[in-house]
Nucleic acid binder design. Structure first.
Lengths: 201, 201, 201, 201
DNA sequence: CATGAATGAGGATTCATTCAT
DNA sequence: AATGAATGAATCCTCATTCAT
């Protein structure tokens, strides 16, 4: 059992490394522009060995996208059920969204920009997870409208999507320019989302 | 000369069609995922004939991106020099930005998502145009701050970029879902940008 | 039109050469043992150029098999409708069968030995043609039984199939050993089929 | 020694299973179309473990062919030395030949169709065994001619080879269609070989 | 005995590009 | 202005084989 467990661990470790390598390469070159050789190089193994961990290049893309979405969504699920003011929760959601661009390597970027190259059958799960995320964010806005902390005129669906668009834009910027500060960007995104650009009062 | 002019006109027409075809194909499949055969099919000519209009596939991408940016920027230049309130101008800028997603076929999308696959030398002009656009938008915000119509605390650079991110997000949505109404989306984007989500007053 | 016709002829010529090259290589090395490089070499073109004439290696196999069966069957159709004694027709059928091994390069051998590697969808037409051939041969035997020139006890289906097996065996031998004489082998096959091995009387 | 013997027995059992598995897979997919993974799957072991029983894939093919030929030939040797009429012996030879297609799994088919993919050095022994088989069969015909039970005009070499071709054809049919009855097919083959198709007398 | 992991060479296929016509 | 034919390099993927454990 020790052997089996150790083996299994070894495989899982390498599998994780493969996902990370694929994420990095896909983020830089795009799915079609990346080669399996690139990914293997990034991992330090032979090209053929990659197929020990992925069934195909497309399967690799799917795994990268799922990897990105899963933890991103799970943090949102946790956040949604915890107590706190809506504006506070929104701030945390933004921070979490931006943070996943840095902590998950480039998987989030890959998900946003490359997922459409997946065959429909491979995208189903992704769609489910993505919808769920949008839903949770929309519910946050709805709750804010209901408890009076947000504008009653708000189109919550539009707001949620706009916030996702905004975070994705800055998330990519965070990847491109490492000097940018996540907390700073997050704070500004929250401010923009809440107060807009008009003078106060 | 008449012949040459006629020829040239015919050539220019076909050239424009080639750019449009390339834009459409690149938007759907990405630069690396698209083949010159795809573009030729879209135009209804033979693969080899494409090289009469483009020096290379990469040159095609460059032309598509330039095509997108040029007119997009020129409308912004005009807008910037015209009289009117800042908020009014912002609204027009947003409308113009979103509109280019529909009127320029998919060239804008291609510019946003695929331009990084161009070699650096090919991207210089694009960078110049893009910077100029961001600058103009930023100046709009600055002017608003100066004349008191926008919040004096505003980070204009951040705001301009956020607005670009927001418009690009919705621009892609406009392409993906043709039922969405440009004017409606534009109005909402302006509202969000100006007032945020908090209750008025 | 002249150009178009000439071009079309050029293509058809090369296409035929490609089929012959594929037949030769598949006969020698088997479908899976042969490489597209082998076929290209046999034709004297580049490996990639082969795909101008075949959609895939499997399509090449299909074309080879069809090429073999079509003419083989058509000669049988002609033969069946012509006048003459049954034994005379049987002799001609045998000669025709054996001859196709030499005149059609190795396509017949490929059909017999490699056709099962084709996907089912690709084999349908082949099955139809093959069945038709067996049918025609069987009808020859039936006619012989009916007109009294063959043994009334004969199982025509078994006889027709056995004759095919016999001819295929010797057809392959003809390919392997070019010193063998087609007419001689054909005559002996006919004799065996008609008289067996027992002493006359 | 006991251990070693036990080990050896276990090894021999597995070795036999490996040959049977290889025969089955080679028969279905051909030598080049089959993978070592296929064979391992058929045996229920890991791909790498196969190399405990075979030095290489080609060695596996050799063993399968030898396995098929050895017993097939030995039965023929026995048959040749036993008393009985020629026609009776021929009948038994045919039955034995056909039977080996069913009892030796698919090894006979593999021998007939795939042995040419073996390197020459590996085929020597097979050639010897095959020649010996043909020789024995030819001698059977010769003896028949000599003792007057067969047609004195008979080309015994041709007859022996034709019978082999006939039996191999029906042997493969027996594999493909398990509803066919060996004894029935054997009887018909004998009848055809002896009497041909002409009416008696 | 057996396996999991890795290799690396080979193979089918694609595709941007060229060019004679 | 356009095309058909060809190229050849690149790329994804497979697979026989090895080997430490």
């Amino acid at each position: 059992m020790t052997t089996s467990r150790a083996t299994s661990t070894r495989y899982q470790q390498q599998h994780q490394r493969a996902i990370a390598a694929a994420a990095s390469v896909f983020a830089k070159k795009g799915f079609h522009g990346a080669t399996t050789q690139d990914i293997a190089n990034e991992m330090g193994i032979q090209q053929g060995s990659l197929y020990y961990y992925f069934d195909s290049k497309e399967a690799a893309l799917e795994e990268v996208c799922l990897f990105a979405l899963r933890d991103y969504l799970s943090r949102m699920e946790v956040l949604a059920t915890q107590p706190g003011s809506i504006t506070n929760k929104l701030g945390k959601a933004i921070q979490s969204h931006l943070a996943s661009y840095r902590t998950h390597h480039e998987a989030m970027k890959v998900h946003n920009e490359q997922r459409l190259y997946l065959a429909d059958t491979r995208r189903e799960q992704l769609k489910t997870l993505g919808s769920r995320y949008r839903e949770l964010l929309e519910q946050l806005f709805s709750a804010g409208v209901k408890d009076g902390s947000l504008n009653p005129q708000l189109d919550c669906r539009f707001s949620a999507r706009s916030l996702i668009g905004l975070c994705n834009y800055w998330g990519v910027m965070l990847l491109r320019d490492t000097r940018l500060d996540i907390e700073d960007i997050g704070a500004r995104c929250l401010e923009l989302t809440l107060q807009g650009s008009l003078p106060p009062g």
